[in-house]
Nucleic acid binder design. Structure first.
Length: 425
DNA sequence: TCTGGGGTCCTAGGACCC
DNA sequence: TCTGGGGTCCTAGGACCC
């Protein structure tokens, strides 16, 4: 069997870099990007990291520090990040035979076929320079015989400047050397809970995990961790997935900008989430049969009474019609709603997906009638809303949406709105 | 006063069937 | 009163990722 070669390409400080790209005046300024509702820090530029601002920290805890050092904050601007991501990914597709877009700022490349005829470090440098030149983004590249090792190689490329942003980890000797240097929690798939349990068994470094007996790990943990051990030893267990598998569930949920205490407002919010979820569903060209609605108070507040509840229902037949789900969601909300709480968040979840037209009704079920006019209406709505922004919607979604999220520090839509293009003076 | 959103996979346990 | 073994399907919950 031919051995695999993967590269992991990862943008440096992606969201923060997107914001800086169109603001050359901020080149050396520390920048952070905030979560929805401007609640916590979800991305930091290298200057902000240096100040000790941690990932995920609530904004109010670092406000003084930020003020003192002149840190610039932005609300998250997903339209901008998604567009920049697409530019990076389509550049990668021109540079490598097979690409798996793994997240908004990362992609795995399959270099198996080209590994023997090209110098891998040189190839990594080419990727880095091309992305830099064509998109303005800086990336690091990690190359290794398994995805887990490629992740670690990328981590090394980011951590040590003298690597020039590219680390070729195809040699066993280098693999072992790096594994010995890294704590076990840096390994892809090892989170905080597993780290604790591994440490209790005396495994503190990635190398100690790599040297554990896979059977022992299988017994004490799971197949997932066993696979990680094999991957750390250069045995590729996780394949490249060039085409994204169809989704198995769609979630739409948001924390509110202000607490909701009024049922009518909650109904608006739920209607909005249903509408978004159904639009995503139609974009996936799927129909769903299962719906969950949930709501809860803030889990962080000690003075609010805690309440968290969810209810699910199954449709008679799969659908992608917003109106069908709106009706069901309203029933679920009636059953869930309790007066007197200060609700902080709610959401809906669609599951149990089918390709349109393949669902088999039970013997005694009503035969399915899918009206063409219904599908056309949904399609028309989607077209209008994609083309012109949010243009038409259902009355139940409300107009003012006073509960909607806070985004007070939003940057302009530099790349996706003609009116907000940056101007060169 | 202020703490994100959207996913996946695996496992255990219960219900049900023969 | 005694009372098996094996299989499947579903769901809830836990863990992880970015």
């Amino acid at each position: 069997m031919a051995s695999h070669v993967f590269a992991l390409v990862d943008c440096n400080n992606f969201y923060a870099s997107c914001e800086k790209l169109f603001r050359p005046d901020l080149a050396t300024t520390p920048v952070v990007v905030l979560s929805n509702n401007d609640g916590c820090v979800v991305a930091r530029s290298k200057e902000a990291k240096k100040l000790g601002i941690k990932m995920g920290v609530p904004l109010f805890q670092v406000r003084d520090l930020m003020q003192k050092h002149g840190v610039m904050a932005f609300s998250s601007n997903y339209a901008l990040y998604a567009d920049m991501s697409q530019r990076v990914m389509s550049t990668l597709e021109q540079l490598a035979p097979r690409v798996e877009v793994y997240s908004i700022d990362e992609a795995f490349l399959d270099l198996t076929g080209v590994a023997h005829c090209l110098d891998l470090t040189a190839l990594g440098l080419t990727v880095r320079h091309t992305i830099q030149k064509w998109t303005g983004m800086t990336v690091c590249v990690g190359i290794a015989p398994s995805k887990t090792l490629a992740k670690l190689a990328n981590h090394a490329a980011k951590t040590w400047q003298k690597t020039g942003g590219v680390v070729d980890l195809t040699s066993k000797v280098r693999q072992r050397k790096l594994l010995g240097l890294l704590p076990v929690h840096e390994v892809w798939g090892i989170g905080s809970k597993l780290t604790k349990r591994l440490q209790q068994l005396g495994m503190d470094t990635a190398l100690q995990l790599a040297e554990a007996d896979p059977k022992f790990i299988r017994q004490h943990f799971s197949v997932v961790v066993e696979r990680t051990v094999r991957e750390l030893n250069g045995e590729s267990c996780i394949d490249l997935e060039e085409v994204a598998p169809t989704k198995k569930q769609i979630v739409s949920s948001r924390a509110f900008g202000e607490r909701i205490t009024d049922k009518q407002q909650m109904h608006e919010a739920i209607s909005e989430y249903i509408s978004r979820a159904c639009q995503k569903l139609r974009k996936e060209q799927q129909e769903a049969k299962h719906l969950t609605v949930f709501l809860r108070t803030s889990p962080f507040s000690d003075k609010d009474a805690p309440y968290s509840a969810s209810k699910s229902t199954a449709l008679d037949a799969p659908s992608a019609d917003t109106r069908v789900f709106l009706a069901k969601a309203t029933q679920l909300l009636d059953a869930l709603w309790v007066n007197g709480y200060r609700y902080a968040k709610a959401g809906v979840m669609l599951a149990d997906f089918y390709d349109p037209g393949v669902y088999q009704p039970g013997l005694f079920d009503e035969p399915l009638v899918q009206k063409e006019s219904d599908q056309k209406l949904m399609q028309l709505m989607d077209n209008l809303n994609t083309k012109f922004g949010k243009t038409i919607w259902f009355a139940s979604q409300g107009v003012k949406q006073e509960w909607s999220m806070k985004r007070e520090l939003l940057s302009p839509a530099y790349t996706t709105n003609w009116k907000q293009l940056p101007i060169v003076k």
